[in-house]
Write a protein that binds this DNA or RNA. Structure first.
Lengths: 345, 345
DNA sequence: GCCCCTCCCGGTAACGTTACCATCTTCGTA
DNA sequence: TACGAAGATGGTAACGTTACCGGGAGGGGC
């Protein structure tokens, strides 16, 4: 019977120091990668750390360093799958840096009320992290600007805030090229919600690839990222006299709707119609066939944004000029079973 | 221009004490609801707290109280919507109690490998929180038992661990009664994955309501909680010579599949067929029509489990006997547009 | 009128870490 | 050979909170 020590005795920096035969200060230096330590000493300390399975105590550390980091995270509920990853990334980063998170969630996919946001600010947060698409809701930005707090937005442009996202234009371009390379010459594209800049960027990428290919016919239908709008847009595209052989929806929900429309018309996906989405939400996989789509590195996006935000909060100044205040991460084209070559060229 | 103080000066317990004209110790007592403070004094302190907008510093507090609380959270990815709420609840509770979270996520909806779990344990966590359905994966439980750590599972029974969940049987019973009250007399039920005890409990609740009603015809089809299995089960139920007028799927994914099958057969939901789900995931709302379903208070579930776990970790002993080691929270029947009265009785 | 007991409250010492400055080496160079 | 400079390490004092004890103010019983 493994009599696991219930006492979380807590091996401290002092224990390590004793074991390595140095002072606690030197151990601290090793942990924080301070260059002013001889290699030999450093090695001895690292060995002691390993031997004792020492983990620095975040509480004590942040008690003496940063007075306290409290960050407000505002999100609605665009896609739950997205939020799950997003929160995961934020939490991991927050716990690594001993930041305290205060969550504020809007109801029914809407942004929280200005009052709620002001309440959050009044509760004493030192910075705000905005999940998409809240970075582009004018009312939210306005309240935040008035508070003059450091803000980081994920997945959206932001003139006066940190922003982290992917290259939507490039991602849409890649997907469109992929469809063209499969042999499709009549493409359909379903636009996203015009209030989000990502919609225009994705359209722009689509159009560039089409223009580049030259001999491709493109039809565009308006949507708003909702399943219902995908239903309408799908019907519209397939009602055309020369319907597309491939439809590229601006997100997975709308792509799922297109698949549903196709099935109702007894069209097989992908034999009769190729469908692709964007975002790689769970919808992409719970469906049959699973969707070819674009995956955003959501977890990394969130972690990166939080990291930049914390740095800015520590620095104290809101803007270190046009420095590294925005970052673009790589997307991935995930190929599943909703895409194939067209029935006949 | 609101010259917001960038210096997070950090109003401390000492500032409050000065303002209230008492010692820091008394302020601490007020914060921790210690009874040994005169009402008059308490009021004065509370006033000072409000006036200064004082927030206790979690870091400092937990530095002196609990040596350190580090909790491992293991989850796969059953439903992203579920996880989003779940993580939200866990995080909120963790940050309120200054617990450090370490996340471990299984790939592709599968449980993490035993090696990964052992790695998590070796990293020095003092307790483990298991998201559904991991509490019922034998391999996971086995590894955890060997480590002899406090464990809390959400949504599942657990002989030797804290468990928090809803009354699945009662919830299924409620939903079935609801269908019967709408006038349905031929019901279809789609079972969940037989490896999860929730499946059997839901079936049991369904059957009890059916038995109670007396004149109701019930047909049961096997599923496994996946969309694909819902497709098969839905076809099977609707192929019957006297197909049901209402189908109760054990989760939303399968319910969504049934809706898809119905549409393919040109059956309107809910005019020709009533469909209900379970869990209230996003799938329930992104679909058309939105699903009537059972909502679990996921956020509260997670928070409660974490709270119980932390208490047990602090107590030091693994089992305070058959005390409050499991808790049942209330579910809610959410009525949306996928249910209606049968076409003809 | 004195003693003891209860009820409130304050002082002091931790908790584990890092900032800051002092100290001790070790060289390179005049 | 000596002396300053740079490099490496240690000592001390914080950070904000609570645990633990000690002590003063009342009140009741004899």
């Amino acid at each position: 019977m493994a009599q696991t020590a219930r006492r979380t005795r807590g091996v401290t920096i002092i224990d390590v120091a004793k074991q390595a035969g140095v002072s606690p200060m030197t151990v601290s230096r090793v942990i924080n990668a301070d260059p002013g330590v001889r290699d030999q000493t450093r090695e001895r300390v690292n060995e002691a750390i390993r031997a004792l399975n020492y983990k620095p105590n975040m509480m004590a550390r942040s008690l003496v360093t940063s007075r306290e980091i409290r960050i407000g995270v505002i999100y609605s509920n665009p896609s739950a799958a997205f939020m799950s990853d997003f929160l995961g990334g934020v939490f991991e980063e927050a716990s690594a840096r001993a930041a305290q998170l205060i969550l504020l969630k809007g109801k029914d996919g809407k942004a929280p009320t200005p009052e709620a946001i002001e309440g959050l600010i009044a509760s004493g947060v030192g910075g705000i992290l905005l999940a998409p698409p809240l970075g582009e809701v004018p009312l939210v930005r306005q309240v935040l600007r008035a508070a003059n707090l450091p803000v980081a937005v994920v997945g959206g442009t932001a003139p006066d805030a940190i922003s982290v996202g992917i290259d939507n234009r490039r991602a849409a371009y890649d997907m469109t090229r992929h469809l063209i390379e499969l042999g499709h010459r009549r493409l359909g594209f379903i636009l996203g919600n015009p209030d989000q800049s990502a919609s225009a960027e994705r359209l722009s990428g689509f159009q560039e690839a089409v223009r580049e290919a030259g001999t491709v016919d493109a039809q565009i239908a308006q949507g708003d990222f909702s399943y219902a709008s995908g239903l309408v847009a799908g019907e519209q595209l397939l009602d055309a006299s020369a319907p597309p052989t491939a439809i590229f929806a601006s997100n997975d929900d709308m792509a799922a709707a297109v698949v549903s429309v196709a099935h109702r018309r007894h069209l097989d996906v992908p034999a009769d119609l190729t469908v692709t989405g964007f975002d790689d939400t769970t919808a992409a996989v719970t469906l049959w066939p699973p969707l070819t789509t674009i995956r955003q590195p959501v977890l990394e996006l969130a972690a990166e944004a939080l990291q930049l935000l914390i740095r800015e909060m520590r620095a104290g100044t809101v803007a270190p000029a046009g420095e590294e205040r925005s970052r673009v991460l790589q997307h991935v084209l995930v190929e599943r079973q909703s895409t194939g070559r067209p029935a006949r060229s």
